[in-house]
Write a protein that binds this DNA or RNA. Structure first.
Length: 778
RNA sequence: GGAGGCAUAGUCUAAUGGUAGGACGGCGCCUUUACACGGCGUAGGCAGGGGUUCGAUUCCCUUUGCCUCCACCA
């Protein structure tokens, strides 16, 4: 064996070995364990946070493989969403709109080739034991087919509907958004008070919405309400008459206590519009320009200043002040959102709340408390799921509309996927028989597709379908998207199959930067995984990921990686020691050998139970603890016998070390494989990752040996301490030690381990704690 | 405003209804044929308040601080 272990060299070589021998290939048969791997978004960057969560899933995958499961561990990349679109647009200096959908999808596929290679290289190097035969991207033909098929099926079930509704809209990206794509931003803005009538003064931050004012609201608790409610007032400048209505959503303490409702200034306006059947008055177009004749073509902000000037002139403006206020913006481009009335496709699920809650209770959550998020989300749902997006890139809706009667026309399953923009419908209108149709130009929200990953992995409806993997065993993911990805996957898969898509959910935390902040490209705090792997080894990086418990965030600590590298080094050195002193034999006659095997049996039991419960960090901890104890004590204690080719010592040393290697293999797949190849392989192509996980051996768990061995261990530790206090080297020779009450078998062990010439069984002086043994040292 | 999580030595991180374990860093000792990327030893810690209990770092309530998701934001 080499004197030093070189992780970079070894890891690249071993990764090739695994690939060549198809170690991670899914083989049908036996107990299947299928994992619904999260497909990372192709946005251009991978950081150690990815390494953190993917490693945690990999620990479980490797454990299950060693437990004899047929592990189905696929991998996908999510490239049908906005982040990919923006990346591709930026890199090619084009816009999707100008290039056109089909050409743009081609451009995406060529542009992301480099990223694809990079992503795959990184995940491979990290030792993620994915079977790359089951690789997909969410814009691929097969996935488009499945996604469109899903839509058509849901339509047939009556689960989708199209409705003209106010929609959250981004005027910069010119697209409808979901609630999920919004974030808060504090903006400097003007807060003005406008007099509608002598006793009706409203406060607003959006005076440009005046032409769209359709009602005035006052709280029923407001003492002015009695007098004002039901009256009509004229809107300044624009002159339309609007009614004063009462509603509890008005806070009498805020502003002037009187609010105008415009179509639409904010979400409350939308609620009032629906609740009171108010008329619609649109004054802003998709691009964020005013459409009212008064300001035609003006930008919203310019119109705001212009109207404030006019209100001043006409003496309607009572007060104007600068405030900071929080508004909803589109998370990608930070543009303030507007509301547009658009025809959108929805998936109906509000009526399924009880069923969805029941499914959430059926799922085994790890950790258990993660279920609360799921339930909390469902209980708060108020709208159905809007799945259409007015963008060019994405998976198109497989729909044409009858030119004559507007009835949707869907294609045949065998013709999927379709792009209605570039092809004509083969079918005639099912309602009126017309053969004239217009294509749907919208695309589906990316969640509408990613919510199908269990069915995508199953290759649902394709010739190559793998039905036995569904329902899958495990959904691993982070806690932030329980309400998006996990929830929507339950919805869609349940609608299609009547089953929960997985048995277990494993919810991981975030890998954060060293200061505990999330890593973002924009924050400039990303740490890339490959340089870390090159410096310390992927195993060392994985060690960091294994050190925090499931569901907890962890900040990236280089020193934790270094600790992992030390563990690798220690493993290597023990292996070196063993390889230098290897001899045959299979007895276990010596007390210390029975002792360490009994301790190992306890460790094995604990580690296995913890792993079965997805407590990988606990499993790693007990094995690691055992290993250091094994090195610092057992190995030191038996050296004198190993040098004399004692077969019992040799057998136990190898058996215990092999078990440790196997139990650390899920965490440190490379160094354990390398040592396994050097010392324990059963022939060419054999891998530790296909070897059997150590079982709990009752016979090995020998209580008497455990007790006696502990006494001997404590006696040796006592003598070590004494030598230390005398400033002696630990292997310094002692002439004579008196021991009272030492188990008979222990005497030669203490003598050999502590380099004692003679042990006398006589009256001891100092009591060795917890042993009942007394010793006299000089 | 709602839901959830977290709070442990200088730093990071475990376990636990009864002496809180480890790592990095400090300090001291030991170069012994696997390893000084090592060994042995030492100093140093449960956010504040209240409750349950014979006993609370652990369970409950509360305050404070941090994080995530949701809602509100005239």
């Amino acid at each position: 064996m080499n004197d030093k272990y070189n992780p970079k060299e070894a890891e690249e070589r071993i990764a090739g070995f695994w690939e060549k021998n198809k170690v991670y290939e899914y083989k049908k048969g036996g107990k299947t364990y299928a994992i619904d791997t999260p497909p990372p978004t192709v946005s251009g960057q991978i950081h150690v946070g990815h390494a953190y969560s993917y490693s945690q899933t990999d620990f479980v995958a490797r454990y299950r493989r060693m437990k004899g499961y047929s592990v189905f561990y696929p991998f996908g990349l999510d490239n049908n969403g906005l982040p990919t679109e923006l990346l591709v647009e930026k890199q090619n200096n084009v816009t999707a709109e100008h290039v056109g959908r089909e050409k743009f999808i081609e451009l995406v596929e060529t542009t992301i080739k480099d990223y694809e290679r990079l992503y795959i290289e990184i995940y491979k190097r990290l030792g993620i034991s994915v079977d790359w035969n089951h690789y997909y991207t969410t814009i691929s033909n097969d996935v488009q087919k499945i996604s469109q098929y899903s839509f058509i099926e849901l339509y047939k079930m009556g689960r989708t509907y199209r409705k003209e509704t106010p929609t959250i809209w981004c005027t910069k990206d010119k697209t409808a958004l979901s609630q999920m794509e919004l974030e808060d931003k504090t903006l400097r803005s003007k807060f003005v008070k406008i007099r509608f009538a002598p006793d009706v003064v409203i406060a607003t931050t959006r005076p440009e919405m005046l032409p769209a004012c359709v009602a005035i609201f006052i709280s029923p608790d407001d003492k002015r309400a009695k007098e004002l409610a039901g009256k009509k007032v004229k809107v300044p400048i624009f002159g339309q008459e609007v009614k004063i209505l009462q509603d509890r959503r008005v806070d009498p303490e805020k502003g002037t206590g009187i609010v105008m409702c415009c179509t639409f200034g904010d979400a409350t306006d939308v609620e009032w519009y629906k609740a009171y059947n108010l008329p619609l008055s649109v004054v802003i177009n998709e691009k964020g320009q005013m459409t009212h004749e008064h300001f035609k073509g003006m930008k919203i902000k310019d119109a705001r200043s212009a109207i404030i000037e006019e209100l001043k002139k006409s003496n309607h403006l009572i007060e104007e002040k600068e405030i900071d206020h929080v508004v909803n913006v589109h998370e990608r481009c930070k543009t303030e959102i507007e509301f547009m009335v658009k025809k959108q496709w929805y998936i109906k699920y509000l009526d399924m709340k009880d069923e969805l809650l029941r499914l959430g209770r059926e799922l085994n959550w790890h950790p258990e408390y993660a279920r609360n998020r799921y339930e909390n989300w469902i209980n708060g749902l108020q709208w159905d799921w809007a799945i259409s997006r007015q963008r060019f890139f994405g998976i198109p809706f497989p729909i044409w509309y009858c030119k004559n009667c507007d009835e949707p026309i869907m294609p045949d399953k065998k013709d999927l996927p379709v792009n209605p923009l570039s092809m004509k419908s083969k079918a005639k209108c099912p309602k009126c028989g017309s053969s004239e149709s217009v294509p749907e130009s919208d695309v589906m929200d990316t969640w509408a597709t990613s919510s199908l990953t269990p069915l995508i992995n199953r290759r649902w409806g394709l010739d190559s379908e793998i039905p036995e993997i569904y329902p899958m065993a495990l959904r691993p993911q982070a806690h932030d998207i329980i309400s998006f990805w996990l929830f929507t996957t339950v919805v869609k898969c349940y609608l299609h199959t009547g089953k929960l898509p997985w048995k277990d959910a494993m919810i991981s935390g975030y890998g954060l930067d060293p200061h505990g902040k999330p890593m973002h490209k924009s924050a400039g705090n990303t740490i890339e995984p490959l340089p870390v792997a090159d410096k310390y080894g992927a195993d060392a990086l994985r060690y960091w990921a294994s050190s925090s418990k499931l569901g907890e965030d962890a900040s990236f600590q280089e020193k934790e990686v270094i600790t992992g590298a030390r563990l690798m080094n220690k493993l290597w050195n023990v292996a070196k020691f063993i390889s230098k002193n290897k001899s045959g034999g299979k007895d276990m006659s010596n007390i210390m050998d029975r002792w360490i095997m009994a301790r190992l049996a306890e460790t094995t039991k604990q580690a296995t139970e913890m792993f079965d419960d997805y407590n990988y960090s606990g499993a790693k901890r007990v094995v690691e603890e055992f290993f250091w104890f094994f090195c610092d004590n057992y190995v030191e204690f038996i050296k004198h016998r190993i040098y004399n080719n004692d077969t019992s010592a040799n057998y136990a040393l190898n058996a215990a070390f092999l078990s440790v290697l196997k139990m650390l293999a899920p965490f440190m797949p490379y160094v354990t494989e390398e040592i396994y190849q050097e010392l324990y392989k059963n022939g060419p192509g054999d891998s530790i990752h296909l070897s059997e996980w150590p079982g709990f051996d009752k016979k090995m768990h020998d209580k008497q040996s455990l007790e006696d061995g502990d006494k001997i261990y404590k006696t040796i530790a006592f003598i070590r301490q004494w030598k230390h206090s005398k400033g002696m080297a630990l292997n310094a020779e002692l002439e004579n030690v008196v021991l009272e009450g030492i188990p008979e078998e222990g005497e030669p062990e203490v003598r050999g381990a502590m380099n004692i010439k003679k042990i006398t069984r006589g009256k001891g002086e100092a009591e060795i704690p917890e042993t009942g043994i007394r010793a006299k040292l000089q």
